[in-house]
Design a protein around this nucleic acid. Structure first.
Lengths: 193, 193, 193, 193
DNA sequence: GATGAATGAGAGTTCATTCAT
DNA sequence: AATGAATGAACTCTCATTCAT
């Protein structure tokens, strides 16, 4: 992994903003270069291909969110429901803090090169599986309802979080923290036995 | 692809499948024509532009789902929670019944021509507003919790439904009806005061 | 040559207007059909090809103007200068009376099919040659100046007439008759020995 | 087509020749690229659109001819008739020296993008107006006839010049200088009071 | 006499990418 | 480290034309 130079980072930021605003397919390298204040050749100096730029969005987001989730999931000092609550609130907050990345994330996976798509989906799946295990554990210990499959529960609630980018606005009435708390509250409430 | 179905319909079906599988931007008119067994010119005989093809997906889905929702929302013979339960279960079932359309729907709005994007978003917004009013009514009459804003509640739960296409598989363990019931159960449970 | 039905004439008129307004190349059969109130197939019922439509403009104009010119050129009852004056005034007037045809005429010859282009140019050449002979006759008899070649004189003055369509407007200050007289006056004045 | 001239210029020359020979509409980018010895992409590296190519013909011609005309029109050291004579002879000579451009010029204005068409027509109009003022000045001072409107006079004689491209051939009997003198002689003769 | 479905060739244009400098 | 010239493939879309009905 290359070290981030200021220029490289500027290109990356420009790409993310444009991908979020116009979509990956509708954004040209030319536009990214212009927005970053370099030439097309300059972009290719730091990234091998347009696909590389997109892939890095996924790498960054996944690594960060997965790492935070795992830390919290493995923290036995809290009872399981509180742990789940904290995890959901946290992923909401980091998604909002990186809203453009989040928008790109759930809008453009299918445009990644096939092998990278597999890789991203696998990591995504691992994330989901870990959360599913927490839910299943709660069902086994009787703190969560058991009439709904754990997989569906996770798909349901993570799905809700994945749509954040389509409606949340920084200048709206709710802070990231408030949304995080509300989301976690709704999830936990829905799981009461 | 059948040869005896009307050409226009064959083109539309081919387009929906390809859009769902590869994304709107990554699907070429050439591919649609090939899949439908016509020439490129043939596609343009029935549709004015690629955008037209996409727009028709939205028109069909929106009209159908909005109409069903309104009928149920206005049906005073059921108590409000049951009405909401029925609405959610129904939109889940029709989304699964038209899963490819649903995938396209939530993946490609931003690729529509600007004016049509506005139109779709406005109709979508009307849909959400109607559901939000039901939730708010429940909050006012004390059957739903009031510590979470109605708007956020609707964004949360409709968001979960909108991600159906990213994980539901027809050959999986759950029928559309089961998913509908589970989703509606989760939503209602999360709203208990 | 087919007899003119009202529909056929309507198609022809629509074509001329559109060719004059937008150019031959930029006008589609579809537009002609729409303007004439028929379908594309209808146009092809009366004309074999788009080129046919254009060619007929030339046929009509050339036949009409050549015939009028010849009649006047051969009329020995008038002295030569007056004959030339009348000829010029007349071609100006008929060009203005059929201004759209005239515009098409001098803007689109090069778009005709090659063989028809040759044919039109040959007839056009015959027209010029006849006028050139009149000028040469005047030079031989001493009524016109001889220091300028007759060919150049004809090219000069017919050229001026051919540009009529680029500036004459029916709602402008001058009638067709006035323009005809002025043009003929200018020509004759320029030829004084 | 030479290989060592700068690419941009080679493309421009190829475009002018083809536009003059076949017309703007009937010339494809492909043909221009082939004639210039580059690829289609190469053409678009230097020109944003086909329209750009055409527009540049107008820009070059207008700037050059307008500037020459103004210098001569403003030169008070010559009496007005001689000035007008020199102007006409000069525009004829430069038109012949750039005959292909001249052909394109008067054949394809109507194919330019609307806004550029306006711009070209406005500059063209300014050119005509300046010449018209010279004629009017001559009428006011009694050196030119007054029974024909100055506007019509200018339209007449500039019209004749604009048709040069339709008949002048470099291998014909007359040099550019001879044609220029003859044209100017004819014009001046036609203006005698 | 007239239609509209269907074609096929080609148009202008965009763009990710390569590479010599 | 960075540029800009140049490519080539693909794209959406247009259109004159044909033909069965």
């Amino acid at each position: 992994m290359q070290v981030d130079t200021p220029v490289r980072e500027r290109v990356m930021r420009a790409a993310i903003s444009l991908f979020a605003a116009k979509g990956f397919g509708a954004t040209s390298i030319r536009e990214i270069a212009d927005a970053a204040g370099v030439t097309k050749g300059g972009v290719y100096h730091y990234f091998e291909s347009k696909d590389d730029l997109l892939f890095e969005v996924y790498t960054r987001m996944l690594r960060m969110q997965t790492s935070r989730m795992r830390t919290m999931a493995d923290d036995d000092s809290l009872p399981l429901p509180q742990r789940l609550h904290a995890i959901v609130a946290d992923v909401v907050e980091t998604s909002i803090a990186n809203l453009e990345e989040a928008v790109v994330f759930f809008q453009s996976v299918h445009l990644l090169a096939a092998d990278r798509q597999d890789q991203v989906r696998a990591e995504r799946r691992a994330y989901q599986d870990r959360v599913r295990d927490l839910v299943a554990e709660g069902q086994a210990t009787g703190v969560f309802r058991t009439d709904v499959p754990a997989d569906l529960i996770v798909n349901y609630h993570l799905g809700a979080i994945h749509r954040l980018g389509s409606w949340y606005r920084a200048d709206g009435p709710l802070t990231a923290e408030q949304v995080g708390t509300h989301f976690a509250d709704l999830m936990l409430a829905s799981l009461r036995p």
